[in-house]
């Protein structure tokens, strides 16, 4: 019971409060790791196409860099945007080290499909399994900038400001990127002759 209450206490803390606590007590950093490891691992796998083991290595680097740079975090942006930014940069660094082009391995869920389809204002019903299969391939064919921004927007459910902070680009550029990504996706879709 006590242990549960102890854990509950931390789960109720905001990210910013956890950061302050972690700076005073190293063990508190564990709660930041627990809060973000699943999300970030999925994010790394989605945008990089690395295996789970490679993704975990990257995730480890991400948390170590997060800890080392914890004093640089301030409230000018959300902690989640900040840690996603570190993750994004670490994935890019890994690609450079491996000299590999990012491949996309997508395990799509219904929410993502619904979000994307609804945003593209299509209204035909389709075979969901067929859709899942083809949209995964289509997203895999998009360039990495477009793919990542669609994943951040429709999968990670980040708003424009958060994406701006993660990618360190102006909001106008983010809006343009998303617009172009959707257009690019639509063009690929038409090539596949899939009607949403």
């Amino acid at each position: 019971m006590e242990k549960d209450s102890y854990i509950d206490l931390f789960s109720q803390k905001t990210d910013e409060e956890l950061v302050k606590m972690a700076l005073e007590d190293q063990d508190c950093f564990l709660h930041i790791i627990k809060r973000y490891e699943r999300k970030l691992l999925s994010y790394i796998v989605r945008i990089s196409g690395f295996s789970k083991e490679d993704a975990e290595d990257i995730l480890q680097e991400v948390f170590i860099k997060t800890y080392i740079n914890l004093n640089s975090f301030d409230d000018q942006l959300k902690f989640s945007s900040w840690i996603y930014r570190i993750t994004h940069n670490e994935v890019i660094n890994s690609h450079r080290r491996k000299k590999a082009r990012p491949q996309c391995v997508l395990d799509l869920d219904n929410d993502f499909l619904a979000n994307l389809a609804s945003d593209m204002k299509t209204d035909k019903e389709v075979d969901e399994n067929y859709l899942k299969k083809n949209i995964g391939e289509i997203l895999g064919r998009l360039n990495e900038k477009h793919r990542e921004v669609l994943i951040l927007r429709f999968w990670e459910d980040k708003d424009y400001k958060e994406i701006s902070d993660i990618l360190k680009k102006p909001m106008g550029t983010v809006a343009t990127l998303i617009s172009r990504a959707k257009k690019s996706f639509q063009e690929e879709l038409e090539k596949e002759s899939v009607n949403l």
Binding site: Q26, F29, I33, E37, Q60, I68, N71, S72
Partner: peptide, 21 residues
């Protein structure tokens, strides 16, 4: 997975005496 990963991260931080800048 989660337990191993978070534990191993903290172990590395402690083991290498990593401190925030």
């Amino acid at each position: 997975m989660e337990k191993d990963l978070s534990a191993s991260i903290l172990e590395e931080i402690r083991g290498k005496k990593i401190q925030p800048k």
